[in-house]
């Protein structure tokens, strides 16, 4: 088992650094396409913490725990925002990107993040514990 914990300031420019660390830890255990899905989900999840949970504040902290097991990578993303996520939204979330591609005026410009995370990972779980939001992303090798 390989385990790394990162603590970053809630700044958007730190997301790329988190992705580099993920690649250094787990890149060789996944093929290129699977790791691209991990990077995408990880970036979206940390971005959600910064932009939604912390409302864009760059004065907070996000903790990212990577655990590499024999058959999977676990990524736990923790923030201390006062705002809790409603877990039912995750359970009921459809991963269909349902819009009319010809209706340019009404194309969505946001709101894809959680769908992308759910589509890209094998497991996505959320819990609120001791005033912290915990997101656990799982990807099998």
């Amino acid at each position: 088992m390989n385990h790394i914990t990162l603590t970053i300031d809630s700044r958007l420019e730190n997301i790329a650094i988190v992705c580099v660390c993920a690649k250094a830890l787990a890149g060789v255990f996944f093929d290129v396409d699977k790791f691209a899905e991990i990077e995408l989900a990880l970036a979206e999840a940390v971005n959600n913490c910064i932009e939604h949970a912390y409302c864009g504040s760059d004065q907070q902290q996000v903790i990212i725990k990577f655990t590499l097991l024999n058959d999977r990578l676990l990524i736990e993303i923790i923030d201390e925002a006062d705002i809790a996520f409603n877990p039912e939204l995750l359970e009921n979330l459809s991963v269909d990107f349902d819009y009319d591609p010809l209706d340019i005026d009404n194309l969505p410009e946001s709101g894809f993040g959680l769908k992308i995370i759910k589509s890209s990972m094998d497991g996505v779980n959320y819990r609120r514990e001791n005033g912290k939001n915990h997101w656990i992303l799982t990807k099998y090798c």
């Binding site: 970036a43 971005n47 969505p108 410009e109 894809f112 993040g113 992308i116």
Partner: peptide, 20 residues
Amino acid sequence: DFIDSSGIGCLVACLKLIGP
């Protein structure tokens, strides 16, 4: 090498700005 949902969103915004 990498685009996320915000990147996609800004391309959509550009498309709308260009107009018909």
